[in-house]
Amino acid sequence: MTSRVILISAAHSAALREARFDDGAAVDAAGLRLARAAAGTVPGAGRVWVSPSVRCRGTADALGLGQAVDAPELAGLDVGRWRGATLEEVSAAEPEAVARWLGDPDAAPHGGESVRAFCDRIAHHLDTAAPSTGRTVAVVEPEVVRAMVVRVLGAPEASFWRVDVPPLTATEFSGRSGRWNVRAGRPLTPSTGADGSGG
Protein backbone atom coordinates (compact mmCIF):
# COMPACT_ATOMS: atom_id res chain seq x y z
CA MET A 1 0.00 0.00 0.00
CA THR A 2 1.00 3.59 -0.60
CA SER A 3 1.72 6.15 2.07
CA ARG A 4 0.67 9.74 1.44
CA VAL A 5 2.09 12.77 3.21
CA ILE A 6 0.46 16.14 2.59
CA LEU A 7 2.49 19.15 3.71
CA ILE A 8 0.44 22.34 4.08
CA SER A 9 2.41 25.57 4.22
CA ALA A 10 1.46 28.01 6.97
CA ALA A 11 -0.76 31.02 6.33
CA HIS A 12 0.73 34.50 6.02
CA SER A 13 2.20 36.24 9.04
CA ALA A 14 3.91 39.60 9.32
CA ALA A 15 7.26 37.79 9.35
CA LEU A 16 6.53 36.06 6.04
CA ARG A 17 5.39 39.31 4.42
CA GLU A 18 8.52 41.14 5.60
CA ALA A 19 10.96 38.32 4.68
CA ARG A 20 11.77 38.15 8.38
CA PHE A 21 13.32 35.04 9.90
CA ASP A 22 10.66 33.54 12.17
CA ASP A 23 10.24 35.69 15.24
CA GLY A 24 7.36 33.79 16.82
CA ALA A 25 4.73 35.98 15.17
CA ALA A 26 1.20 34.67 14.82
CA VAL A 27 -0.71 34.39 11.56
CA ASP A 28 -1.91 37.86 10.55
CA ALA A 29 -5.58 38.81 10.10
CA ALA A 30 -5.59 38.26 6.34
CA GLY A 31 -3.87 34.89 6.65
CA LEU A 32 -6.26 33.81 9.38
CA ARG A 33 -9.26 34.78 7.25
CA LEU A 34 -7.96 32.75 4.28
CA ALA A 35 -7.17 29.74 6.46
CA ARG A 36 -10.64 29.78 8.00
CA ALA A 37 -12.17 30.00 4.51
CA ALA A 38 -10.17 26.91 3.53
CA ALA A 39 -11.33 24.87 6.53
CA GLY A 40 -12.86 21.65 5.29
CA THR A 41 -10.67 21.42 2.17
CA VAL A 42 -8.03 19.26 3.86
CA PRO A 43 -8.70 15.54 3.37
CA GLY A 44 -9.04 13.25 6.36
CA ALA A 45 -5.85 11.67 7.67
CA GLY A 46 -4.80 9.05 10.15
CA ARG A 47 -2.07 11.33 11.51
CA VAL A 48 -2.05 15.13 11.72
CA TRP A 49 1.17 16.92 12.67
CA VAL A 50 2.13 20.56 13.08
CA SER A 51 5.49 22.33 13.09
CA PRO A 52 6.19 23.84 16.54
CA SER A 53 5.71 27.49 15.60
CA VAL A 54 2.99 29.95 16.51
CA ARG A 55 1.95 30.54 12.91
CA CYS A 56 1.78 26.82 12.08
CA ARG A 57 -0.36 26.07 15.12
CA GLY A 58 -2.59 29.05 14.30
CA THR A 59 -2.95 27.85 10.72
CA ALA A 60 -3.80 24.31 11.84
CA ASP A 61 -6.45 25.59 14.25
CA ALA A 62 -7.98 27.87 11.60
CA LEU A 63 -8.12 24.94 9.16
CA GLY A 64 -10.03 22.91 11.74
CA LEU A 65 -7.02 20.72 12.56
CA GLY A 66 -6.94 21.43 16.27
CA GLN A 67 -6.09 17.78 16.92
CA ALA A 68 -2.70 18.20 15.20
CA VAL A 69 0.19 16.83 17.25
CA ASP A 70 3.34 18.92 17.66
CA ALA A 71 6.20 17.49 15.60
CA PRO A 72 9.45 19.13 16.82
CA GLU A 73 11.34 17.22 14.12
CA LEU A 74 9.45 19.26 11.52
CA ALA A 75 10.54 22.62 12.95
CA GLY A 76 11.64 25.25 10.45
CA LEU A 77 15.25 25.94 9.58
CA ASP A 78 17.22 27.05 12.65
CA VAL A 79 18.85 30.37 11.70
CA GLY A 80 20.52 30.91 15.05
CA ARG A 81 21.22 34.53 15.92
CA TRP A 82 19.49 35.82 12.77
CA ARG A 83 16.10 34.86 14.16
CA GLY A 84 13.75 37.85 14.23
CA ALA A 85 15.78 39.92 11.75
CA THR A 86 14.83 40.57 8.13
CA LEU A 87 16.99 39.25 5.31
CA GLU A 88 17.63 42.88 4.32
CA GLU A 89 18.91 43.72 7.81
CA VAL A 90 21.20 40.70 7.96
CA SER A 91 22.48 41.32 4.43
CA ALA A 92 23.41 44.89 5.35
CA ALA A 93 25.19 43.84 8.54
CA GLU A 94 26.82 40.61 7.33
CA PRO A 95 26.88 40.55 3.51
CA GLU A 96 29.67 37.97 3.23
CA ALA A 97 27.99 35.63 5.71
CA VAL A 98 24.67 35.85 3.86
CA ALA A 99 26.35 35.20 0.51
CA ARG A 100 28.11 32.16 1.95
CA TRP A 101 24.88 30.87 3.49
CA LEU A 102 22.92 31.25 0.24
CA GLY A 103 25.68 29.72 -1.88
CA ASP A 104 26.96 26.87 0.28
CA PRO A 105 24.47 24.27 1.61
CA ASP A 106 26.98 23.31 4.33
CA ALA A 107 27.41 26.87 5.66
CA ALA A 108 25.75 28.01 8.88
CA PRO A 109 27.32 31.41 9.65
CA HIS A 110 24.36 32.29 11.90
CA GLY A 111 25.31 29.53 14.32
CA GLY A 112 22.20 27.52 13.56
CA GLU A 113 21.53 24.77 11.03
CA SER A 114 22.96 24.40 7.52
CA VAL A 115 20.61 23.79 4.61
CA ARG A 116 22.07 20.32 4.09
CA ALA A 117 21.60 19.36 7.74
CA PHE A 118 18.05 20.72 7.62
CA CYS A 119 17.18 18.72 4.50
CA ASP A 120 18.66 15.62 6.17
CA ARG A 121 16.51 16.17 9.26
CA ILE A 122 13.24 16.64 7.37
CA ALA A 123 13.77 13.73 4.99
CA HIS A 124 14.83 11.42 7.82
CA HIS A 125 11.76 12.24 9.89
CA LEU A 126 9.30 11.68 7.07
CA ASP A 127 11.03 8.50 5.91
CA THR A 128 11.05 6.99 9.40
CA ALA A 129 7.91 8.44 11.00
CA ALA A 130 5.43 8.27 8.13
CA PRO A 131 3.92 4.78 8.22
CA SER A 132 3.89 2.48 5.22
CA THR A 133 0.16 2.99 4.60
CA GLY A 134 -2.43 5.71 5.05
CA ARG A 135 -2.36 9.48 4.92
CA THR A 136 -0.48 11.97 7.05
CA VAL A 137 -1.19 15.72 7.00
CA ALA A 138 1.26 18.23 8.45
CA VAL A 139 1.04 22.03 8.69
CA VAL A 140 4.60 23.26 8.33
CA GLU A 141 6.89 26.16 7.58
CA PRO A 142 7.51 26.71 3.84
CA GLU A 143 11.15 25.67 4.11
CA VAL A 144 10.06 22.22 5.33
CA VAL A 145 8.22 21.75 2.03
CA ARG A 146 11.30 22.97 0.12
CA ALA A 147 13.53 20.50 1.92
CA MET A 148 11.25 17.56 1.16
CA VAL A 149 10.87 18.54 -2.51
CA VAL A 150 14.64 18.77 -2.89
CA ARG A 151 15.16 15.32 -1.38
CA VAL A 152 12.31 13.61 -3.22
CA LEU A 153 13.57 14.89 -6.57
CA GLY A 154 17.18 14.04 -5.75
CA ALA A 155 18.12 17.64 -6.49
CA PRO A 156 21.28 19.26 -5.11
CA GLU A 157 20.73 21.17 -1.87
CA ALA A 158 21.78 24.37 -3.66
CA SER A 159 18.38 24.24 -5.42
CA PHE A 160 16.64 24.66 -2.03
CA TRP A 161 16.37 28.43 -2.58
CA ARG A 162 14.75 27.97 -6.00
CA VAL A 163 11.62 26.23 -4.74
CA ASP A 164 8.76 28.68 -4.16
CA VAL A 165 6.17 27.62 -1.59
CA PRO A 166 3.21 30.02 -1.33
CA PRO A 167 1.21 30.18 1.90
CA LEU A 168 -1.75 27.83 2.29
CA THR A 169 -0.76 25.40 -0.42
CA ALA A 170 -0.66 21.63 -0.15
CA THR A 171 2.17 19.52 -1.54
CA GLU A 172 1.56 15.78 -1.61
CA PHE A 173 4.23 13.07 -1.41
CA SER A 174 3.21 9.51 -2.15
CA GLY A 175 5.10 6.25 -2.10
CA ARG A 176 7.17 4.47 0.49
CA SER A 177 10.17 5.25 2.66
CA GLY A 178 13.08 6.26 0.46
CA ARG A 179 10.99 6.37 -2.74
CA TRP A 180 8.50 9.21 -2.98
CA ASN A 181 6.69 11.03 -5.79
CA VAL A 182 5.53 14.62 -5.50
CA ARG A 183 2.48 16.62 -6.58
CA ALA A 184 3.42 20.29 -6.46
CA GLY A 185 1.60 22.75 -4.21
CA ARG A 186 -2.09 23.24 -4.75
CA PRO A 187 -3.87 26.22 -3.21
CA LEU A 188 -6.29 25.44 -0.41
CA THR A 189 -9.48 27.06 -1.57
CA PRO A 190 -13.10 26.35 -0.69
CA SER A 191 -13.65 24.83 -4.14
CA THR A 192 -10.50 22.65 -4.29
CA GLY A 193 -9.38 20.13 -1.68
CA ALA A 194 -5.72 19.34 -1.01
CA ASP A 195 -6.06 16.20 -3.10
CA GLY A 196 -7.20 18.22 -6.12
CA SER A 197 -10.85 17.16 -5.91
CA GLY A 198 -13.74 19.52 -5.52
CA GLY A 199 -15.54 20.10 -2.23
Rank of each mutant, 00 (worst) to 15 (best):
L74R: 02
S51E: 03
A71K: 06
A39I: 01
P109C: 02
T41F: 06
V182Y: 03
G111W: 02
G175N: 09
V140W: 05
A60Y: 06
G44E: 10
R57W: 13
W180K: 04
H110K: 06
A10W: 04
M148R: 12
E94Q: 14
L87Q: 14
A19L: 11
V27S: 04
A39D: 04
A26H: 14
E113C: 06
V137E: 00
P187G: 03
A184R: 11
P167N: 07
L126D: 08
V42L: 07
V150Q: 04
E73Y: 01
N181K: 12
G84P: 11
D61G: 00
S114A: 10
A97R: 08
T128H: 09
A10K: 06
F118V: 09
E141T: 06
P167C: 04
A99K: 10
V165H: 04
D104K: 01
P52V: 08
R179G: 09
F118T: 00
D195V: 05
V79Q: 02
V90G: 07
H110P: 04
E141H: 08
S174T: 14
S13R: 02
H124N: 06
D120F: 07
R20N: 02
R146T: 13
L77P: 12
D22K: 00
G80A: 01
D195E: 12
F160S: 03
A129H: 13
R121V: 04
L65C: 02
M1R: 08
A130E: 14
D78V: 01
P52K: 05
R36H: 05
